[in-house]
Amino acid sequence: MKNRFLLPLSGEYIIKVSGKNILSFFNYCHKEKIIISELKHIDEKTIKIKVLKSDYQKLKKLKKNYKIKIIGRTGVLKLKKDWKKNKHLIVAIICGYFILLVLNSIIFEVKIIHEKKEIRAIIQSSMEKYNLKPLTFKKSFKEISKIKQKILADNKEKLEWLEISIYGSSYIVKAEERRKSIPKEEYKHQHIIAKKDGLIVNVYAKTGEIIYDKNEYVKKGTIIISGNITKDGNVVKKVKAEGNVLAEVWYRVSVEYPLKQTVIHSTETVKNSYKLKFLNFDFYLWNKNPFKNQIKKEEVILSHSFLPFQLIRVKNRKTIVEEKIYSKDEALLAAKKLAQEKLLGKDNEERKIIEEKILKYYVNSSKIYLDIFYVVLEDIALPSEIKEEAKN
């Protein structure tokens, strides 16, 4: 009875037995307590039976009188046979699977999206500092979030906002430059000077003497409102000159804009998947990639303080990837808008464009290049300290 429960576990031989006296064969099996779990008569002299491996060893003694041939196996015996026959293929498949797991865990590209080379260089240097670079293992969502905060802290004077996403085997990095206004220094005694070249449109002096007025052109550093109060050509006192100088300032802005862009739109469709993370290897339980294009957001729901093991819920948000191709006119309009944003956002100062003129532009196979001349209305007033002259 005990052996009957072991049949599915240990496996059996499927044997073809041929001989003149099959009845004697059955008598021998009964005498040796050989369990036949399945019997099929093929003809008067041939049967097919299933027996345990241990019982097959007993039957081998009858090979002089009967033709006994193994024609199949079940359970563990079949697995062992299949393993011997296909072990090289199985090993290759297993190795291939683990190689794919490893490759899927490696980053091959870091793409930094920003128009300024300086900002791209800062981000790239910071990414490399925290080992977010090609040919390294992917970081978890939690690790990336921590590193993002560190990069922002390290570059708080340069970066306002940073996003690091994983798309396939790439890190996609987007950033926003921090734009801050330079506070005007004020002194006990000061002039108001021009902080850049410009044509004066209007001067308002709260205190001090106006030296240059409307429709006069001034160079950078020129005193427009003096803190020296004069009488008959002599300085009678010094004050803190205050006021505003509205002037026309000229700029030349160069931009480039792609004729083709990959635009990713997030949708409201979300599906959850779960994975086990061991060291830097991810083993998805199911639903690894429910959508063709998606953004993944990870949440650790189970972890251990000492073991490198985590159970992670992955929220897969479906995205629509649009390959947008611009005509020359569309690209030109987009480039002009980009140039205006670049100009008006510069230094975070208030500016008003009163005239613009395209100096030149040209288009190649992938981008449009544009140079624009702008006349901008802005305040060019800058306090400058009146230094005391050294007395002999």
Rank of each mutant, 00 (worst) to 15 (best):
K58E: 01
F108V: 07
D282G: 12
R73S: 05
K111V: 14
Y66W: 09
T230W: 03
S266P: 08
N234G: 01
T269Q: 15
S54E: 06
N3G: 04
S165H: 13
L285R: 11
R351E: 06
E185F: 13
E118F: 07
V51L: 02
P134C: 05
I211E: 06
S18E: 12
K275H: 10
D197F: 03
S140P: 09
E118M: 05
Y326T: 04
I15P: 02
E185R: 15
K40M: 13
L52C: 03
K78C: 05
I200Q: 09
W286L: 09
F108P: 04
G11C: 02
K292H: 11
I380M: 08
P308V: 09
E176M: 09
H304M: 06
N289S: 01
K360M: 03
N27R: 15
E322W: 06
V263T: 07
I93V: 14
I70R: 01
V363P: 01
K238C: 05
I295P: 00
I358W: 03
D347H: 14
I113E: 15
L100T: 12
P308L: 08
K69N: 13
S305I: 04
Y251I: 00
K63F: 12
I225N: 02
L285S: 13
A241F: 01
K277S: 12
I15E: 00
K260M: 11
G227R: 11
I119H: 02
K292C: 00
N65D: 15
A381L: 09
I34Y: 01
V76D: 02
W250T: 05
I295L: 07
N131W: 14
H30R: 15
A121T: 14
N21Y: 09
N244D: 11
V375E: 01
L23F: 14
D347L: 07
L103F: 13
F137S: 10
K188A: 10
T46Y: 05
V201P: 00
K84M: 06
N234S: 07
K85L: 02
L7F: 03
F306D: 13
D379G: 07
E323P: 10
Y362W: 04
K342S: 12
K196I: 06
I372A: 02
K296E: 09
V270G: 01
L259P: 11
G233R: 04
Y204V: 11
R252M: 00
E185W: 11
E186Y: 14
S366C: 04
I119N: 03
I192R: 11
I122G: 05
S254D: 15
K156D: 10
K33N: 10
N287M: 03
F26S: 06
I182C: 03
I47F: 02
K360L: 03
N215L: 04
E341F: 09
N234K: 14
Y56L: 00
N3D: 04
Y171I: 02
D43I: 04
V249K: 08
L259T: 08
R178W: 02
L152M: 05
L302M: 12
L199M: 13
L359W: 09
E186W: 13
M1T: 13
K150A: 10
I166C: 03
V239W: 01
F309K: 15
I264Y: 15
H30P: 00
E389L: 12
I193H: 07
I164P: 12
F283M: 03
D197Y: 05
V235F: 02
